[in-house]
Measured scan of single mutants.
Amino acid sequence: MTEYKLVVVGAGGVGKSALTIQLIQNHFVDEYDPTIEDSYRKQVVIDGETCLLDILDTAGQEEYSAMRDQYMRTGEGFLCVFAINNTKSFEDIHHYREQIKRVKDSEDVPMVLVGNKCDLPSRTVDTKQAQDLARSYGIPFIETSAKTRQGVDDAFYTLVREIRKHKEKMSKDGKKKKKKSKTKCVIM
């Protein structure tokens, strides 16, 4: 069974824990209790493949930012979460993405942009803004509501699919490099 290491990042209060708990335990946590770091595991079937999701729910508070490099190193894919009623959390996505790329030393890291709290009427981040940002990053965008469960499975499952595509691409690139290195030079 394939294991996928997913990391949920975003500013404090955007609903990272609520999304994760909704996926794992099928219930909505409405009281806000700032996370330092929590880890969850769940076995699911995605596109006919049974897999184990190892999900790291991270601290959004700035005082825990020193811990970010460590979990970013171990993560295979990242859910970059903002709240649709919090423009600052949307603007912060850029910083999370840049930090992930720096730590992973790669421009090509599996990510999904997630606009959470889409059940709320007080939207300050337009869907088109988020779609445009995701398009500019070359990553999928999904709106979710941890409260109603809308888009929750889709967000995590899409990230797994992005990781699969990335692994497939990397193995193809690896095979191309191996083929090239088999060419021999004969000096007579």
Rank of each mutant, 00 (worst) to 15 (best):
K101I: 09
E76H: 11
V81R: 00
F78P: 00
M111W: 04
Q99M: 15
S89I: 05
G75Y: 11
T124V: 11
K101E: 10
L120V: 13
D108P: 05
L113I: 13
S65W: 06
K117Q: 13
K88G: 10
S89R: 04
E107G: 13
H95W: 08
S106M: 14
M111H: 02
R102T: 09
N86M: 03
T87A: 15
F90K: 10
D69L: 01
D126H: 09
L79T: 01
S65I: 08
L113D: 00
A83N: 15
T124D: 14
M111R: 01
Q99W: 08
V125P: 12
L79H: 02
H94P: 02
F82K: 01
N86T: 07
D69Y: 03
D119L: 05
D119H: 07
D126S: 10
H95R: 14
S106K: 10
S65E: 13
F82Q: 04
D119E: 10
G115W: 10
F78T: 01
D92W: 10
Y64M: 05
G77D: 00
R102N: 10
D105G: 15
L120E: 14
V81H: 05
E63V: 04
V103Y: 13
G77H: 01
K88D: 13
S106Q: 14
V114I: 13
V112S: 01
V109Q: 03
E63P: 05
L79K: 00
K117V: 15
C118P: 08
P121S: 13
T124N: 13
G115E: 06
F82N: 05
I100G: 01
Q99E: 08
L120Q: 10
L79Y: 02
D69K: 03
P121E: 13
V125K: 11
D126G: 10
F90I: 14
E91G: 07
K117H: 14
R68M: 06
E98M: 04
E91S: 08
N116Q: 15
D108Q: 14
E98R: 06
N86R: 05
D105Q: 10
E76F: 09
V103Q: 03
S89Q: 09
G75A: 15
V125M: 13
S106T: 14
K88H: 12
L120H: 12
Q99C: 06
V81F: 12
D119Q: 05
F78A: 00
Q70F: 03
R123S: 14
T124W: 09
A83K: 06
R123V: 13
N116H: 15
H95G: 07
G75T: 05
P121R: 09
Q99V: 04
N86E: 10
M67G: 09
E63L: 04
H94E: 15
T74Q: 11
H95L: 06
C118D: 13
P110V: 04
H94W: 14
N86Q: 08
T124Q: 13
P121Y: 10
D105V: 07
R97I: 15
S122F: 10
R68D: 03
S122H: 12
M67N: 02
Y64I: 00
M67A: 01
E107W: 13
N116V: 15
K117S: 14
E63F: 05
V114W: 01
P110Q: 03
F90T: 05
V109W: 06
G75W: 05
D108G: 09
M111P: 02
R123A: 14
D126V: 08
I84E: 15
Y71N: 00
R123W: 11
E98S: 06
K88V: 10
E63R: 05
K104P: 03
D108W: 07
F90S: 10
E76D: 15
I93L: 11
K104G: 06
G115S: 08
K88I: 07
E63N: 06
A66N: 07
D108N: 10
M111A: 02
P121L: 11
L113V: 09
S122V: 10
R102F: 07
S106G: 12
T74L: 09
R73F: 07
I84L: 15
T87G: 10
C80T: 04
C80Y: 10
M67W: 01
Y64G: 00
A83Q: 13
C118S: 11
T74K: 04
A66P: 14
L79C: 05
V81I: 10
T124R: 09
G75E: 04
S89V: 05
E63Y: 06
I93A: 08
A83E: 15
D126K: 08
E63I: 03
K117A: 14
Y96A: 05
K88Q: 13
T124F: 10
R102K: 13
S65F: 06
K117N: 14
T74P: 04
F82R: 00
A66L: 07
E107K: 09
D69E: 11
R123Q: 14
V114C: 07
P121N: 14
A66I: 06
M72Y: 02
T87F: 13
M67R: 01
Y71C: 03
R68K: 05
Y71I: 01
L113N: 03
V114T: 02
G75K: 02
A66Q: 12
G77S: 03
Y64R: 00
V112R: 00
T87R: 10
